[in-house]
């Protein structure tokens, strides 16, 4: 579906059903250098099980126009503008990686608008290694390879995502390559620069769920301890056999956790 947010044409995948703002709304927020399609299975399932789904392409990503936003705080406010454009008062946010930071910040700033948050592959702070951050600026193909390799625990997963026959690492690389030049550095810098996460998490009263990949080396399980401690109402789901690309590597386990929570 096409919306206008901050005057820019904005795309949200609605899970294969027309969006109904009267249903409990779930907003899926992708991570750096990604688009809505990283959530294909989970978003489609929830849309067919009683939720109104907005799996967005963030500004400058996928089909959404406008420049990519330069801070987590700016994206958090953008999410509220998106809800306004869609006629939604209250929503649950499900964010991956950079999207998880956005979810924390948004819930802290706008408690009346956010029902619950789900943080998939999160770490606060989300320090990006200097080597990777520089590569996102100077050599995007190298940076994409780094992220792609570090994000996956294995060269095969059963079932594959979004279905049998898909080579998950190949698909992830192509999604990153599809983003406009320059977007990757803006995203990774926004993650790296976001220092307010623990303070923000302390203000979040909404129930929160953390979904942690046991073999995640981008946002490793130990890096979620501090944020988990800061959140008042939280539960933690650990998933074995997956790295940072949890929705692709363990789509069923991620979906089961979401289904039980949102």
């Amino acid at each position: 579906m096409e919306l206008t947010v901050h005057k820019h044409a904005t795309y949200a995948y609605t899970g294969g059903k027309p969006f109904d703002p009267a249903l409990p709304t779930v907003v899926f927020i992708h991570g750096a250098e990604h688009d809505h399609s990283v959530w294909a299975l989970q978003s489609r399932y929830l849309a067919h099980h009683g939720r109104g789904v907005l799996a967005v392409d963030l500004p400058g990503h996928g089909r959404s126009e406008g420049p990519p936003l330069e801070s987590v705080e700016a994206i958090a406010d953008w999410v509220i503008a998106l809800l306004d454009a869609a006629g939604v008062q209250r929503a649950t946010l499900i964010g991956h990686s950079m999207g998880s930071l956005v979810s924390i910040e948004c819930a802290a700033r706008h408690p009346e608008r956010i029902a619950k948050i789900v943080l998939v592959g999160t770490a606060v702070p989300m320090k990006v290694s200097e080597e990777l951050l520089n590569a996102t600026r100077d050599d995007e193909p190298l940076a994409q390879d780094m992220v792609n390799i570090w994000s996956h625990a294995a060269y095969a997963q059963y079932p594959s995502n979004p279905g049998p026959g898909f080579w998950v690492m190949g698909g992830n690389l192509r999604v990153m390559q599809r983003q406009k030049p320059g977007v990757m550095h803006v995203d990774f810098k926004a993650c790296n620069d976001y220092v307010n996460g623990i303070t923000a998490a302390g203000k979040v009263a909404a129930p929160a769920m953390l979904i942690v990949g046991k073999r995640d080396v981008m946002t490793p399980p130990r890096a979620t301890k501090e944020i988990a401690a800061a959140l008042a109402d939280k539960r933690i789901v650990e998933i074995a056999g997956t790295g940072h690309a949890l929705m692709a590597e363990k789509p069923d386990e991620v979906l089961d956790a979401l289904r039980d929570f949102v």
Partner: peptide
């Protein structure tokens, strides 16, 4: 059936042995 979960339904459409071959050639 509705592509909300990944997996196998019927071997004309997909099969676990075939899927290994398909993913390997894609790689």
């Amino acid at each position: 059936f509705n592509m909300e979960r990944a997996g196998h339904v019927y071997s004309r459409i997909s099969n676990p042995t075939n899927a290994v071959l398909e993913e390997r050639i894609a790689a």
